[in-house]
Amino acid sequence: MHFQLVGLILWWVGLLLEAVILARMLFTRNFKNYPVFYLYILCVFLISSGLYLLYWKTGNLVVYGKWYWPTQLLTLVIGYGVILDFARRSLAAYPGADRFVRAVGLSIFLCIFSMVVLHLGFTRSWSQEALYSDLEKVLRAVEALFLIGTLSVLSYYGISIGKSLTGIALGMGIYVSASLTLLALTKFIGPRFYPAWELLQSGSYFAALVIWTTALWSDDSTPSPPNSSGPGNYDDLAGRTRADLKSLRDYFGSGARS
């Protein structure tokens, strides 16, 4: 009962925060910067409100549960879009690093996809709920791996991203890693973990919403890369040296004349 009440409060506050993020988007006109992310928030807001209305009208958890998994998969797919968009935007100015992430991401996807197909081929006795739950676990694992790949590349190449993108990655990362861990624990511990799972899952999403609200409160575009590398920049150095040599030549020339 206590768990249910806390879960319900998190649900209400979560809806409120989603509405705040969407309202701020209209105010800051940030939609053009992060369209996929705001589409994700809008979808989650609509689905979450719809599920709440369904729960409130029927008061039946079975009906709610019937709709929960399909809608969860839908938001998960849009969540993929958010992660891909994050990778694309944070590496837009770095074609080398971007190419690296794309290659790693494609390998991860192919690897996990082959594993799932093989698994499906061998075990053909999945119930619908088990199918959704296992599918979510696999898809969360791919999301986590892709985020790990992108963040590792950002860290390795020392790439700086703006406050908003950092916030999007932090929120998404916390939610994805919590979901992945909790799904694995649910499978391992069994039904007695369900109440704690619901609460922790909602809690991690609530934490993500708080981070997103803070990070996207004001407009903040990704910083431009530090001094671009390559011969162009070396030319600057050469130009400055040439100017210094010219002033030296002038100095010595005037000295010789006087």
């Binding site: 676990k137 694992a141 986590a144 791996l145 985020l147 790990i148 963040l151 590792s152 860290s155 990655a169 932090l170 990362g173 916390i174 994805v176 890693s177 919590a178 992945l180 861990t181 799904l183 694995a184």
Partner: peptide, 12 residues
């Protein structure tokens, strides 16, 4: 899953 979750937390 725990290893993946922890790795992601560390990078975040």
């Amino acid at each position: 899953s725990l290893a993946l979750g922890l790795a992601l937390f560390f990078l975040l």
